[in-house]
């Protein structure tokens, strides 16, 4: 079950500052909805634990994240893969950065997730609105953190 979202927002930070924030898992990951903990594996790979739950299906998802594209001040793309209760999920989150007037940065983002397994069968209809809510939380968090 594929879920895709995209959007654009502007923050009062330079592209390099935004980029530095995005590629630093210690700053970026706590903004993930229902974040529990993180373990850094190496410079580009880390393991994030998130609380997930839909209705009665609740548990912890361990998601292995990798920074797969990193172009300073221009672009950062993460890919993740993990098990969620009753299934598995892959995700890709990309951020394209563009300088905007007044030292601001326009962030164009694209989120894409593919959920498989019992959770997709049981809660397929609920996944999309839940994902939308969580993505919005992340974007709101990013905007707040980037001032």
């Amino acid at each position: 079950m594929e879920i895709k979202f995209s959007g654009v927002f502007t923050v009062r930070k330079t592209p390099q500052e935004v980029y530095d924030f995005l590629v630093d898992p210690n700053r970026f990951c706590p903004l993930l909805p229902d974040y529990q903990s993180m373990e850094i594996l190496d410079a580009k790979n880390f393991l994030v634990k998130l609380s997930v739950g839909i209705s009665h299906i609740r548990g912890t998802a361990a998601v292995k994240m990798s920074l797969v594209e990193a172009e300073p001040a221009t672009r950062a793309v993460y890919e993740g893969k993990g098990d969620v209760p009753g299934g598995s999920a892959t995700l890709r989150a990309g951020f394209d950065l563009q300088a905007a007037p007044g030292g601001e940065t326009k962030v164009s983002w694209l989120g894409q997730s593919n959920v498989v397994g019992r959770i997709a069968s049981l809660a397929g209809g609920l996944l999309e609105p839940l994902a939308k809510k969580n993505v919005q939380k992340l974007i709101d968090g990013l905007q707040k953190a980037l001032g």
Binding site: M1, E2, N114, V116, G117, R118, A120, S121, L122, G124
Partner: peptide, 14 residues
């Protein structure tokens, strides 16, 4: 099934 091969009726609710 959906296009990924997920059975969309794995409980009696569905």
């Amino acid at each position: 099934y959906d296009s990924d091969g997920n059975l969309m009726a794995s409980t009696f609710s569905d």
